[in-house]
Amino acid sequence: MNIASVKKVEDCFDGGSVFSYEMDEEVTEASIKRLGVLGRLDYFPHFPRPFYRLITDDGLQIKGVEGERDFQVIFPRKEKEKIKEEFERFITTHN
């Protein structure tokens, strides 16, 4: 899976930033579950369109819906660029 586009949505009050990612493929159950190695994953497969969210120890937050190509990511203020770079490397190599 590769990143098709990344758009900054807004800056948070605490200095973090919200980005919208669009991938070149739909996010699947398998790819959602792989995200679990990064932190605490909540996955709601019983929703009409399954929702997932992930929070890492670094403060990175991801949320999205299975079957969509896009999802939202909040990067924390601290080490924002480094965390963003590592996250993008992870999703393109592990998904």
Binding site: F44, F47, P48, R49, F51, R53, K63, G64, V65, E68
Partner: peptide, 12 residues
């Protein structure tokens, strides 16, 4: 905010 996101995206 997240509940609103889920209501919109997961439940329509």
């Amino acid at each position: 905010e997240e509940a609103g996101y889920v209501l919109q995206e997961s439940f329509g």
